[in-house]
């Protein structure tokens, strides 16, 4: 099914791409605007980057967000992988349906409901056990793990289902005990899925505003909370600069990932060529 695109479809794709990317491009261009009024062009300048870098609030928010994202991604990957293993490889167990439901529900649950319910949970827990004594890093991280683990589970589940059980069965046939099979065969083969699950959890956490707003406490501002509080009142050139920095970071990371994937692809091709030569 290739190369048979009609003109209508080509036009729709072009319009779609313009729709997706023109707003981003303008966002970047206006970050270099001298004028304090974002839409009014006042000449090229990098003054808003200076404002940005000198702002302690921004740095604190960035550091808090990164910390939360890192811890969240790590825990969500562990819990999500365990969940996926349970769903795909353990057959039927008691409460599997409920478990499966709880794994998929966070993917579609409106954030506002998740946020609200987690906040009332934390408050109730505080009243009953005195923990968590204050809201901030811990509560946001727990909230993020809860919805991120569902995304990791979906990613890993897809990979597990695609992998089949042949290699596991071969290892068992060669005398490996089930736990050994898990650590020596299943987990190494899952590495790409684990990596993408981790990255997904990391970005989801960095991106979350609504849930964090509910479960945060005084003084604990993540980057989205900080951005939101500023842009609610209108356009701000320093936020354009911040957006540009974020887009740049993402672009660099994506380029690196693409490079790694390209190298891997080239290695695969070489392997295939070697394999072909082996046959003739």
């Amino acid at each position: 099914m290739h190369g048979s695109r009609s003109r209508f479809l080509t036009i729709m794709i072009s319009l779609g791409m313009a729709f997706f990317y023109i707003p981003m491009i303008l966002l970047v261009i206006y970050s270099f605007n001298y004028s304090k009024l974002v839409p009014v062009w006042g000449g090229w300048s990098t003054r808003w980057y200076k404002v940005l870098f000198e702002s302690a609030d921004v740095w604190n928010a960035v550091s808090l967000s990164l910390k939360i994202a890192f811890v969240n991604a790590t825990f969500a990957t562990i819990l999500g992988t365990l969940s996926a293993l349970a769903m795909v490889r353990f057959g039927r167990f008691k409460g599997r349906t409920l478990f499966g439901g709880m794994l998929v529900a966070p993917l579609v649950m409106p954030e506002i409901i998740t946020g609200l319910s987690l906040l009332v949970l934390f408050i109730s827990m505080q009243q009953l056990f005195g923990w968590p004594s204050e809201r901030g890093f811990t509560t946001i991280t727990i909230a993020h793990i809860t919805f991120s683990l569902a995304y990791v589970a979906v990613t890993v589940q897809a990979r597990l289902t695609g992998m089949g059980e042949d290699l596991e069965e071969a290892a068992a046939d060669l005398g490996a005990k089930p736990f050994k099979v898990l650590t020596a065969i299943t987990l190494p083969r899952l590495t790409p899925a684990l990596a993408s699950g981790w990255l997904l959890a990391f970005t989801l956490s960095l991106d979350d505003l609504v849930i964090a707003s509910f479960v945060t406490g005084p003084g604990a501002n993540t980057l989205p909370i900080l951005i939101f509080s500023r842009i609610r009142l209108g356009l701000r050139p320093d936020i354009n600069a911040l957006a540009t920095m974020i887009i740049l970071t993402v672009a660099v990371c994506v380029a690196l990932a693409a490079l790694i994937m390209y190298r891997q692809h080239k290695r695969d091709l070489l392997d295939q060529q070697m394999a072909k030569r082996g046959d003739s």
Partner: peptide, 29 residues
């Protein structure tokens, strides 16, 4: 093309909304 569709996921949701504030405002683009 697929990559171009997925890419915005990795940038901030909030900033994608913000980009439209700049486009749609009274003195906007």
């Amino acid at each position: 093309l697929l990559f171009a569709i997925i890419l915005p996921f990795w940038t901030s949701f909030l900033l994608r909304v913000y980009a439209w504030m700049g486009l749609l405002s009274d003195q906007g683009t």
